[in-house]
Computed example of a mutant assay.
Amino acid sequence: MQCCLLDPFDPRWGRLLERCAHEFYHLPGYASLEARRMGGTASALWAEDCGREWLLPVVIRPLPVIPGAGAPALPWRDAVSPYGYPHPLTTAGETDVDTFLDEALAAMREFLRSERVLTVFARCSPLMPLAHAYSNHGYVVKHGPCFWLDLTESAEELQSQLRSRYRSYLNALRREGVTAAFIPYSKGLDDFVRLYYRTMDRVGAARWYYFERSYFEELGKLLCDALRLCVVKQGDQLLAAGLFASSGGIVQYLLSGVDERLDQPHATKLMMIFVRDWGKAAGHRILHLGGGVGGTDDALSQFKRGFTRHFSLFCTWRHVVDAEQYEVRLRAWEQFSGMAADPIEGYFPAYRKPIGKSADPEPTHRAS
């Protein structure tokens, strides 16, 4: 079994994507974009044996400095998947996938120990199955539901799944002349960013969700026509705007903002229905709305539930490469914070859990 850390320019990364169904979350360029935002190095964990391959995009970061943890001669690092759903990929066939993954993940653990990568945290796609081997080589934690629309269903079936009061809201919006449309990304980016930041301020979002404008610019360059900006307007007034990305037959709802001052709280619902109908007409298979904040079943999750009967659980995979070194970091964190470290199903890795009232945790590192 051959194991490597691939950099974004390694041709093996691109060649595997040519052989596997994947989304934009798996692109080397997306890992690089996330690495710049997270202060790490873009990479992919890769294993190969007899033509069968396994790959997981990650961002490699130095461990945070914890007083009392000591400073080893060769520092440790850890790995986290880019934000979103960069599910681990494999080219192994159905008949031998379990055996291959068992062997690949065992070999990857030894390789990562030699590379002094202490933990791996992966966000997995609720739209793809996760083999049992991941539970054998780490911990699979189930979070809240993620909601998706099956765009291969008939228009009548899709409409029947819409919550009844949503239909009333949509009818009222249309009577008032409210419309939804896609506009050129570069033309509408300033207004989108303004609305998005305003929405994050209103809901008290963590700083993690305040993507810089340059991030949106780079995302547009990376995805080109696969990234679409939808706006909802009443006359010349912008009520709401949202970003959607399509790849591999899946349309992902990314981010949105709404201007609450204009007293049209249901504008986002019209946007979702517009994108649903466009996605079906364009031949996409799934519109994925996602779930709640941090993978929880919260008010945002309930909002998304109103569009569809389909949902799947969002899972994360947590892998401790060196249990002894992990324990050393936890004890140092506990001594410094005065608190008990989270168990494996809580905030992971527990030594990265922020301390204090102003703490700003990364999404889905905590249990739902």
Score class of each variant (00 low, 15 high):
residue 183 I to A: 10
residue 151 L to Q: 01
residue 159 Q to C: 05
residue 154 S to I: 08
residue 148 W to G: 03
residue 168 S to H: 09
residue 163 R to P: 00
residue 175 R to V: 11
residue 179 T to D: 07
residue 179 T to W: 04
residue 182 F to Q: 04
residue 148 W to I: 00
residue 179 T to P: 01
residue 174 R to S: 08
residue 169 Y to R: 07
residue 169 Y to C: 09
residue 176 E to M: 11
residue 150 D to I: 08
residue 165 R to V: 04
residue 161 Q to H: 14
residue 150 D to L: 06
residue 150 D to Y: 09
residue 175 R to L: 09
residue 177 G to R: 06
residue 151 L to A: 01
residue 182 F to D: 02
residue 158 L to C: 03
residue 177 G to D: 02
residue 154 S to T: 15
residue 177 G to Y: 05
residue 185 Y to P: 00
residue 158 L to P: 00
residue 159 Q to N: 12
residue 156 E to S: 13
residue 183 I to F: 11
residue 172 A to M: 05
residue 173 L to Q: 02
residue 156 E to Y: 04
residue 166 Y to E: 11
residue 156 E to V: 14
residue 169 Y to S: 11
residue 163 R to C: 09
residue 167 R to Y: 02
residue 166 Y to G: 03
residue 167 R to T: 10
residue 170 L to F: 06
residue 175 R to E: 09
residue 174 R to M: 03
residue 183 I to H: 04
residue 159 Q to P: 01
residue 172 A to P: 02
residue 169 Y to F: 15
residue 177 G to H: 06
residue 168 S to T: 14
residue 165 R to N: 13
residue 154 S to D: 12
residue 157 E to V: 13
residue 181 A to I: 08
residue 170 L to N: 02
residue 170 L to Q: 04
residue 160 S to N: 14
residue 157 E to F: 00
residue 181 A to V: 08
residue 181 A to P: 02
residue 182 F to L: 06
residue 181 A to C: 14
residue 157 E to I: 04
residue 153 E to P: 02
residue 158 L to H: 03
residue 185 Y to H: 04
residue 162 L to H: 09
residue 148 W to E: 11
residue 149 L to D: 02
residue 175 R to H: 14
residue 174 R to Y: 07
residue 176 E to C: 10
residue 157 E to S: 15
residue 164 S to A: 11
residue 173 L to D: 00
residue 170 L to Y: 01
residue 151 L to N: 02
residue 162 L to V: 13
residue 173 L to E: 01
residue 152 T to W: 05
residue 164 S to R: 15
residue 171 N to A: 13
residue 177 G to E: 03
residue 164 S to L: 07
residue 155 A to Y: 05
residue 149 L to K: 01
residue 148 W to Q: 13
residue 181 A to L: 08
residue 149 L to N: 02
residue 183 I to W: 04
residue 166 Y to R: 10
residue 166 Y to K: 06
residue 165 R to K: 15
residue 162 L to C: 10
